[in-house]
Nucleic acid binder design. Structure first.
Lengths: 145, 145
DNA sequence: TTTCTTGCAAAAGCTTTGCACACCG
DNA sequence: CGGTGTGCAAAGCTTTTGCAAGAAA
């Protein structure tokens, strides 16, 4: 059992909730699927192997993941929620290609420091942040354009 | 007529669209209302003086504002679009209070530089970006908490 | 008069919820 | 057994769209 799975089990137990087949299946597929899947994409993947699992269950389960901290809900402006696995303390931001939709991740501790500075100047206490750079990825801005 | 109004008139003319009372009213109220209004908030304000203006017209007009560059559409995670006036070249980011909902603006050219660095490293061409820091504002993180 | 706009209501798209039945502990 | 979870369908919300009537050029 992976660390993430353990966190989830603990959360379930602590809250008096129940461990079910569906939750296990959804968690496995979620972890396996790589980041940035929309709820619908995840649902479609799961349905291939487990056609009886309902849309609502996927929604509800992803909310649980977010609540216990193993997933993070994100919106990239297309009106759909996306979830990505949270692995520990590391934080990353995103480059989103306007053309092909590719989502790249990056991390920059200097930017984070400057964010803290800004917050301090405003007596603001940061709980989370989001930084997204929209534009054209290497492939889409290349020769063909 | 303000600079922004002129930009809009020019855009309207260039596109072969028409200047209407409703568009003028909505633009005025939009400029007067300060940043970060949701479409609904703006609609409600407008309806006080002009009860016959419809919801759809406000939506459609704000899209036009965004298209011609005098407004920018933003999403802060509450599921509603918000628009804010774009004044020239300056760019700013946001501090969003999770408690009272206050939205503060800031600008930091050093952060923007670092973003450019990141983009260069990935051969990514930035068209726009969004940076939002979520947390507690001065008032909400103060003594009472 | 021709084309674009508007207001209304209906539709669309994503997400949540109510409910009866099933399952976990 | 008692309470929680599930699947389905229906409802909720925000936003978009179709259409007939109205206004601008």
């Amino acid at each position: 059992m992976s660390r993430t799975q353990k966190i989830f089990k603990d959360f379930i137990a602590r809250k008096g909730l129940k461990s079910t087949q569906q939750r296990d299946i959804i968690l496995n597929e979620f972890l396996k699927s790589g980041a940035h899947l929309s709820t619908e994409e995840l649902y479609l993947r799961i349905r291939k192997k487990h056609p009886s699992i309902g849309y609502a269950t996927v929604y509800r389960t992803l909310k649980l993941f977010a609540e216990c901290g193993i997933a993070e809900e994100r919106h990239f402006g297309d009106g759909q929620a996306r979830y990505e696995p949270c692995t520990g303390e590391e934080h990353h931001d995103h480059l989103v290609c306007r053309d092909c939709g590719a989502i790249l991740e990056f991390e920059d501790s200097r930017i984070e420091e400057l964010q803290e500075n800004v917050a301090r100047e405003h007596n603001f206490k940061i709980l989370s942040h989001r930084l997204e750079l929209y534009g054209l990825c290497e492939r889409c801005s290349g020769g063909s354009k």
